[in-house]
Design a protein around this nucleic acid. Structure first.
Lengths: 336, 336
DNA sequence: CTGAAAGCGCTTACAG
DNA sequence: CTGAAAGCGCTTACAG
């Protein structure tokens, strides 16, 4: 039914055996330049495309890897996909985008099913799935190559790419301290996102280093959503001694806090400084634009794909640079 | 090397021929309940997963479709992916996420290559790729099943799902007119997004219907980006007779216009009303929240997948409802 | 309701 | 440097 030409038809036109066509397609050595050229011409003439299914079935590689994600942030997912996709295509691999539920009972089963069905050559795992330990352990047991993006737990010897969330959290906090702030609140992300815990650790480290007492009442649980940022800000600003600065674990929550400030006519940054994390589009779209930490999301995924498919096996853990972005949502602490 | 069990091993354990196992896997009729049960048990015991490559190669269906997208909006792409993915998985299909360049010379060639390599059963095409006519025509020629999301051109008899952008643009404009605005600016999206042209048409229709003169100087070209919204607002507000309302073709541009207003201490909505389109997360994250048109992005993609894979062949064009969201970024026109 | 044969379009050893 | 045989793990006709 499908008029797709096959390797055999190509071989007929090129006047060689179909095995030779296969060699050319796979860029094998030991093919004379003349033969190679003839085959390439025949391929172009027929507009031949090798069947991926046939290659996968016959060969020992599928040239397919999956990207696992479970993240409510369109911005994050979009850039993770773009970076991973770019590097995979460059290296001749297809990338399957696989949403999943990192908390689900059957996460491991679902992923191993995909691995088997699709004969996957490897898996790229973005947070928070990158910290789903039962899955990670099963992949190690089955010797499936994988790479983790921003894993917080047991980074160990597995392939991984991340930024230094602790250092970034510390830098941002130190910047706020430098502006004169002492009552600095922190809004945490969901517990299964280890990065959030690390940013919180950096916040504590900075307070300690500068002799500012850590006040647990100024640390509020959020879930990385805009709504949770609103809620956190409302509870913080309801205090008799509200903070002069709010450091939210990501930009969405910072935007939520900012909306609360606007509603209450609290001028940012004059009366209240607000900072986020990630430097998503949102950070530049709100007013005033958010002071935040730029995270190279796309590069993280690009590097992860590169490590998985084209790594040297030696450099197994990669740490990329982050950048503190000072914008108008933060300013000197108001005089008491 | 891979210890994957095959259909033959399942058949041995179940005590039937491997052909019968195939029947059970494909939910064919004419299998006794007892036999079916035995096979299913064997499948569970071995944790058997059929090889997708083998099924594709042997059968005439690959149970694979691709989603084509070329859209700089993470929000839009994320929800399009989620909706299409959900319905595909429900119907037993795998969805390949395929970014592409709708303006590229070799768009058609790239897509047909994917179709051949992956033996695709169909294609879901999101805007602006859904209006790349050379591609659409080639798919028709090759009789590849496809469905277009929000196509503007030649909707014709091809499968498609959309909202009524003209009506939505008209409603939003009428709302602004109802608030007393007469000098209403419109910021257009990029020319290859036909939806933008249609929203603009709705804007014109509303002006006409209410006897408001159409002023071409109040229509500014943008490209759906935040930055272009900023630029548009800057040029509009530099006029000696600036508009009292700005209707931006999407939320990102509206957010850009809003930022300009903030910078210049123009109070929104008291001195200037601003409206967007799409109702992305951004619309609710900025201050004041944007009046906009809610577009059921996820449903559009879900319905597109459904039409492609489970349609009745009769209802070929689907129009989903939009909703005007009145929020705080628009208000009565200031008294002259 | 169930089965034995052929074949999908490639790659993998193995030869020469 | 090139080729003939076998086989990957399934589905498709064709039988009975």
């Amino acid at each position: 039914m499908s008029g797709r030409p096959t390797i055999k038809e190509v071989s007929k036109i090129a006047g060689v055996s179909f095995k030779t066509v296969s060699r050319v397609l796979n860029n094998e050595k030991h093919v004379s330049e003349a033969t190679r050229r003839k085959v390439e011409e025949a391929v172009a003439t027929l507009n031949f495309r090798p069947s991926h299914a046939a290659r996968t079935l016959a060969g020992r590689k599928s040239f397919q890897v999956a990207l696992l994600y479970d993240n409510p942030s369109p911005y994050y997912v979009y850039h993770i996909q773009a970076g991973a996709q770019e590097r995979c295509v460059e290296l001749g691999f297809r990338l399957l985008h696989q949403p999943c539920d990192s908390e689900a009972e059957d996460l491991t089963q679902g992923v191993t099913a995909l691995i088997d069905e699709a004969h996957l050559d490897g898996v790229i795992i973005s947070p928070p799935v990158s910290d789903a330990m039962p899955l990670i352990e099963e992949l190690e047991r089955r010797k499936i190559p994988f790479v983790r993006i921003a894993p917080g737990i047991a980074r160990g010897s597995t392939l991984s790419v991340a930024i230094d969330d602790v250092a970034a959290g510390r830098e941002l906090t130190e910047y706020l301290i430098g502006l004169g702030h002492r009552a600095i609140a922190f809004v945490k992300g969901p517990p299964n996102h280890i990065s959030s815990e690390e940013r919180h650790q950096g916040y504590r480290d900075a307070l300690d280093a500068h002799g500012v007492a850590y006040d647990p009442d100024l640390v509020v649980q959020g879930d990385y959503s805009f709504a949770s940022g609103r809620k956190a800000a409302e509870s913080l600003l309801a205090r008799t001694d509200p903070p002069t600065a709010i450091f939210a674990g990501n930009d969405d929550m910072a935007a939520g806090a900012l909306a609360v400030a606007h509603e209450r006519d609290i001028v940012v940054p004059d009366a209240l400084s607000i900072a986020g994390f990630d430097d998503t589009d949102l950070a530049r779209a709100v007013w005033p634009p958010l002071t935040t930490v730029h995270q190279p999301v796309r590069d993280l995924a690009w590097s992860a794909a590169n490590l998985l498919l084209d790594g040297d096996g030696k450099h197994r853990q990669l740490t990329l640079d982050h950048v503190l972005k000072k914008r108008a949502s933060t300013g000197p602490a108001p005089k008491a």
